[in-house]
């Protein structure tokens, strides 16, 4: 006879086995649930991203529509009024003493009409982008050169325009305007170099300045980093990339690339 009966050994072994299998099942279940949680979080994050992009898209469309309306009103209403003023001024028959002043006023009105047309074209992005992005940027830079002393260098290396991608070009043009506006307001630069490049599948915009530069982390944390954040988001909206390299005292280099097929 054995000292410890086989039944008891069997019972204890069985109980221990069950008591070991049960926690293993619990551990497996917790791990499985955790994986499901990760999937759920990923889905949630993706939905949030999609929602943010949709919101950004709507904001962009509303902004574009507003600018379009202002540009049309400027061109049609104020432009018409100025044209009428110019015609009225030219029809005045004055003596030689007043003629000079009236002619000078007429010339000023003609200049105002030209400036107004240029401004309304810049505001109306679709109109400006009709030819291509390079043309729109060159037009904007002409406007910039007039009012400021920046040394501007622009290189257009684009090969072809794809009409179906005009919306993308328009967004890229608005990004360019935002970057230029940031340089004027904050950089304190004297030289701006712009280039647009095209490959088989991408269109890239690069803007360099020799301004005071900044520490990127500080800028992103500060509230005035919203501009950069928006540029980055808009680039993402087009499935593009946005990179920024800034050195304090040397300048900033911004590169935006978007798919262009």
């Amino acid at each position: 006879m054995q000292i410890l009966s086989k039944e008891v050994i069997f019972l204890i072994t069985l109980t221990t086995s069950i008591f070991l299998i049960a926690p293993i099942f619990i551990i497996v279940y917790v791990s499985y649930y955790n994986k499901k949680k990760a999937k759920h979080l990923e889905e949630k994050e993706s939905l949030k991203k999609t929602f943010e992009l949709e919101l950004l898209k709507s904001q962009f469309e509303v902004q574009e529509h507003t600018m379009e309306t202002i540009a049309t009103n400027l061109h049609d209403n104020i432009g018409q009024l100025l044209s009428l003023t110019s015609i009225t001024l030219s029809s005045i028959k004055a003596d030689s003493a007043q003629e000079g002043k009236i002619n000078a006023a007429g010339e000023l009105v003609v200049r105002a009409i030209q400036e107004l047309r240029q401004l309304s074209r810049i505001m109306s992005g679709k109109e400006l982008i009709r030819k291509n992005l390079g043309h729109a940027i060159a037009f904007e830079l002409d406007w910039l050169k007039k009012g400021t002393d920046y040394q501007v260098q622009f290189t257009d290396n684009t090969i072809r325009t794809i009409p179906q991608n005009s919306d993308k070009e328009l967004i890229l043009f608005r990004l360019f305007q935002e970057i230029i506006s940031n340089i004027i307001r904050h950089a304190g630069a004297t030289k701006i170099t712009i280039s647009i490049d095209q490959t088989d599948s991408t269109l890239s915009l690069q803007v360099k300045d020799n301004g005071k530069g900044f520490v990127l982390e500080d800028k992103l944390q500060a509230s005035d980093g919203m501009g950069l954040f928006n540029i980055s988001k808009r680039a993402k909206m087009m499935d593009g990339t946005f990179s920024i390299h800034s050195v304090t005292g040397v300048g900033t280099d911004i590169l935006v690339s978007i798919p262009y097929i």
Partner: peptide
Amino acid sequence: VNGILLYYFGSTAC
């Protein structure tokens, strides 16, 4: 915790 659970749950019978 996995180790703790396996050890203490498994040793209950003993």
